[in-house]
Amino acid sequence: MEAAEMTSPMTTITDVNELKRIASQVRRDIVRMVHAVNSGHPGASLGCTDFFVTLYFNIMMHDAKHFKMDAKGEDAFFLSNGHISPVWYSTLAHSGYFPVAELNTFRKLNSRLQGHPATEEGLPGIRIASGSLGQGLSAACGMAEAKRLDKDESTVFVLHGDGELQEGQIWEAAMYAAHRKLDNIIATVDYNGRQIDGDVNDVMGLGDLKGKWAAFGWNVLEMDGHDIDAIIKTIEKAKAMRGSGKPTVILMRTEMGQGVDFMVGSHKWHGVAPNDEQLKTALLQLEETLGDYPEPKK
């Protein structure tokens, strides 16, 4: 595909401080969204906020105002660990995929913002349902195959939880991507070491995760998921590996609950919403930078 046919990013923000300001607002949205319905998954949503903001506002070539399901000529993102929908919804909204005000419908009846991402009501930015774990890498492989068939040079991104890697389908897809030399895939693992029942190492340890991916035939990179500068540089490095004939995975170290002191680093906030008092405490720690989404009309 000619470079001219590629979609231009709507907004490429290179100023790290500006990205941090967006991340602060996304974190506010996350805690407000889960608090409003007393359900949802704040832990890894907060942990992946810096990654999402960097991906959508700095890295990806995408056109938020003209969402294309087929992603022809633009980068595609799949969220395999669908339970961290709050961070995705907030990032999509602030990117321009749908009105920020719609965040106040999260997990409510008749909303496009389902508890886990879904396509049924046509929410722009979502290409496949996820929630039942382990399925996103396969879908990313299919999209990557189609892009190669169509000589479309854009990239397929996919995010996984580390606990999610306990699902066998992940490794079927990992084998497939390497065998098929799908070097247009960049997978990221949210390597926070926690899952619902406790530490990943206690529940079902992943062992030598770097070695596992390498043995499956992948390029393996590592990064600090809370250092926006490092995220930009690492993903650029991953993109430069196009042509290696190998897919690339980035093991991203994060802390569950990042940004809220009483949530950080504990699996207890995987899928629990803050109460009124806890919400107040959390919001004091997160600057309102872009304006909070409005409360729903009573």
């Binding site: 990557a144 189609a146 897809a173 084998m175 497939y176």
Partner: peptide
């Protein structure tokens, strides 16, 4: 041959790859 994908003995992945191809506009 370029439109045929051998996935090996991995049916779960096959269904997901098919879903991804369909997302991109193919008819798998």
């Amino acid at each position: 041959p370029e439109r045929f994908f051998q996935v090996g003995i991995a049916e779960a992945n096959m269904m997901g790859v098919a879903a991804g191809l369909a997302t991109a506009g193919k008819i798998p």
